[in-house]
Structures are given as structure tokens and as C-alpha cells.
Design a protein around this nucleic acid. Sequence first.
DNA 1: TGCTTGATCAACCACTTGATTGATTAAAGA
DNA 2: TCTTTAATCAATCAAGTGGTTGATCAAGCA
Lengths: 129, 129
Amino acid sequence: MIVDPKSEERLDRAFMALADPIRRRIIARLSRGSATVNELAEPFEISKQAVSKHIQVLEQAGLVTRTRDAQRRPVHLNAVELERMTSWIDRYRLIHEQQFRSLDAVLGAMGASDAAAPPSVDTIKEKEQ
Amino acid sequence: MIVDPKSEERLDRAFMALADPIRRRIIARLSRGSATVNELAEPFEISKQAVSKHIQVLEQAGLVTRTRDAQRRPVHLNAVELERMTSWIDRYRLIHEQQFRSLDAVLGAMGASDAAAPPSVDTIKEKEQ
DNA sequence: TGCTTGATCAACCACTTGATTGATTAAAGA
DNA sequence: TCTTTAATCAATCAAGTGGTTGATCAAGCA
């Protein structure tokens, strides 16, 4: 499986960027439309410089882009990067779900008739797979 | 809008947890089945203590759970928390997409763009770091 | 030309993170 | 019992993060 090192680092930054509640609120705000740094800083009690840094973090993660409008620097959401994050997560969610299903089938075929859906995983010793 | 503070913190930890490539590889491994700390540490060149810490981070984020099997502490993926992460992201992806669509409709009806910051890709200038 | 506004740069500080090594707990096996 | 195995705890360290204040840049406007 070939893994693009740049894609690794981009994921690092994207997840790190969303690990902060202020940055998540910024993303939430931007989902409703672009905004300037001042507008984005307004609801928060921290300095505008701090908000500016948060936006830089989001920008380097590829989650937002910035344009220029005179002395304003409007910030726009980049939904493509959000999509990359969900792709990563969903990939392993799917694998896990399928693994879970086939394990369930094995247990069912072995004669243990309970076949409980909830995770009775704690008794499982993984040797197959 | 009521926001459960614990849910905020849980998201903080979940996103932070996935911001590390080693922890993402651990999640990827666990999607294929549960494993012990030693098994999880095997592909990495860092110490087992370090891997143990990574697993603690994942556990406190709710992304994995641990059980006991004699002196082993098998680690299991908790897909529910992964689902919470995609839910958060997809929520704002959806809002953004709808916002985008309605803006598109407005622009189409007007024929000109004087709305606040239309995020058209062709006007984007810089992408420096 | 100056002045104001929007935003960033720079230096600094407290705190956290990721890693290390060495010691320790806990259960199995001889 | 003594030894091995699985894993964590404890102390420490370098590097990174999130915040501050003060200075600076860049574009309109009087």
C-alpha cells in the first residue's frame, strides 16, 4: 500500500487543527459563509492575533483558504479537505464493521447460538484475519 | 443551542488523538481486529512505553477500549467514537454545500457578483506558507 | 500627505506532548 | 519458590502549542 508522505502530514495537520474548540467554531462559522479575521474574532475573548494564528493553523491544514479584498483577508472554508478526513475515518470504520460481521458469522457457525450483536469482543482472541 | 461540555472535550481528544500518524496506524491495525500492546508496538521503532502512552491517548479519547486476558490487555476499536467525528465534520460539510448552492442560485439570478465574498476559485491568489 | 483600519510579525511565557530510561506491578510457567 | 512475560509507572527532557503585548505593514480615506 503506497502512502503519499504529504498526505500523511496533511492529515496530521487537519486532525490537529480540529482538535481545538475555537478552530472548530471557526469552521462552523465559515460553513455558513466566508468571513474576515475581525468577524471571526468577534465572538471570542482572546486577542485578534490569537485568532489570526488559529486561522493560520487551519490554512496550513488546507481546511481554509484566504483571498484579498482591499485590506481585508476574507477566509473561506475548503470542504475538500474535510472530505479527506471523513474518507480516512470511514475507510477504517467500514473495515471494522465488515470484520465484525464476518467474525459474527464464524461464531454463529461454531454452534454458539447466542450470536449477540453488541460487542462481546472481550472474549475474542484474534488469531484469524 | 445547548452544547454538552463533555462532548466538546471528547471531540478535542478524538481529533487530537488522530493527529498523530502512529496513532492513526494503530487505529488502522485495530480495524482489522483487536491486538495487544506488544503486537501493536511491533511495527514501530519507538519503545513499548511510548506505544502504551499512545494507546492511553486513544483510550481517553474514547476511540479504543481495553479488556483483560490474564496478563494481556487487548485493545479494541470503538467505532462509535469514529462515527461521532464524521458526524461533526459532515454536519458542516452539508451546511457549506447548501450555502454554496443557494449562493450559486442567487448569483445566477443576478448575473453579477456583489455579495460578500463569493468564494470562486479563480480569484484565489496566494497559497504560500 | 497624514490618519485610520484590518491584519500580520516578533518576542516572550506557561503549559503540554512525545519520547526516553529505569523501576515496578501482575500473572503464568518452571 | 524463582523466572519470564506483559504492561504500566515515574522522572526527565526537547520540542511544540496557545496565549499575551507591542511594533509593523498595507490599503483606503480625510
